[in-house]
């Protein structure tokens, strides 16, 4: 009998509290705009921060308040931008998907004797924090001979929330299938090596060295020396050489791949074509780089 009373009391109290709460939710009802929830649903919810806001809901709120533009979500891409524009009743520009590109190809390849056969020369053994910013501050320009090259301590790998970055032979690589183009990696790279590029392109110039040709050659076998051969052969005038570095204007590039065939450093890569093998960089005294 006593247990029944206990059950009845607890149940009764629960019922009363429930009714009070139901009444309170009516009395204290706050109207929120359904568009805000809809905006939130459009966004991928990965909270990568690529838009510059604290997370997806923060971006949704900023768009809702008119503080942010539509289409800043690289991860959601064009579909997301169009859906958000439809909710807010405005027209969005077409957003093309971009992926990150690491502008360095100085992968360090050593022969069996430990001599550097290809890639960027290392001038010092760095044993500090495994962090690119820390490494870049050491000894003026970091442990690499090239003061523009990828340090390979993986700050971008840590920043990537999509697992699209990895370090291969001391240089960061982007898995373009996984990359959503949030460019979180670019913000942490102390060398500013990472740039957004269209995913449907074949040729890339993966070097950021602004040093003079001779200096670049001394520090890396695959650095752009600004020779301009690619610029001469390009039928569409898509390549410019400025500050000893060639860059491709993708609005003019037709992905013909001619530039990749003439680059003496085999630095311009054409993903349609098989790897052209190690660059043969010879001088009169044998290989240019000897560790």
């Amino acid at each position: 009998m006593e247990i029944l009373i206990a059950v009845a009391i607890l149940g009764g109290l629960g019922l009363i509290f429930g009714l009070v709460l139901a009444a309170a939710s009516k009395v204290f009802y706050v109207e929120s705009d359904p568009r805000l929830d809809q905006l939130n649903e459009c966004l991928p919810g990965a909270n990568c921060g690529g838009c510059g806001y604290a997370g997806c809901s923060a971006y949704a709120e900023a768009v809702f308040n008119g503080e942010a533009e539509i289409g800043k979500c690289a991860s959601g891409g064009n579909d997301c931008a169009q859906a958000m524009a439809a909710i807010m009743g405005v027209k969005a520009q077409t957003v093309t998907r971009k992926v990150a590109l690491v502008r360095c190809s100085g992968e360090k390849i050593y022969d069996t004797d430990g001599n550097l056969t290809k890639g960027a020369k290392v001038k010092a053994n760095y044993e500090g924090f495994k962090n690119c910013l820390a490494a870049s501050k050491v000894g003026g320009s970091g442990p690499l001979s090239c003061k523009y090259g990828c340090l390979g301590y993986g700050s971008c790998v840590k920043a990537c929330k999509y697992g699209a970055m990895k370090i291969v032979n001391g240089v960061a690589h982007v898995d373009e299938d996984l990359c959503v183009g949030c460019m979180a990696c670019a913000t942490v790279c102390p060398r500013h090596l990472i740039v957004p590029v269209e995913p449907d392109r074949n040729v890339v110039i993966a070097c950021a060295s602004l040093a003079k040709g001779a200096v670049t050659t001394r520090s890396c076998t695959v650095g752009c020396i600004g020779c301009g051969l690619c610029k001469k052969i390009c039928p569409n005038e898509a390549i410019t050489v400025e500050n000893n570095l060639a860059t491709i204007d993708y609005s003019k590039c037709t992905n013909c791949g001619l530039c990749a065939t003439v680059c003496p450093k085999h630095l311009i890569k054409d993903s349609k074509v098989e790897d052209l093998g190690d660059p043969v960089v010879q001088s009169r005294n044998g290989p240019v780089i000897q560790a």
Binding site: V27, F28, V30
Partner: peptide, 9 residues
């Protein structure tokens, strides 16, 4: 719960 609703409003 009631306090939360009250504050929200």
């Amino acid at each position: 719960q009631v306090v939360e609703m009250f504050l929200k409003k």
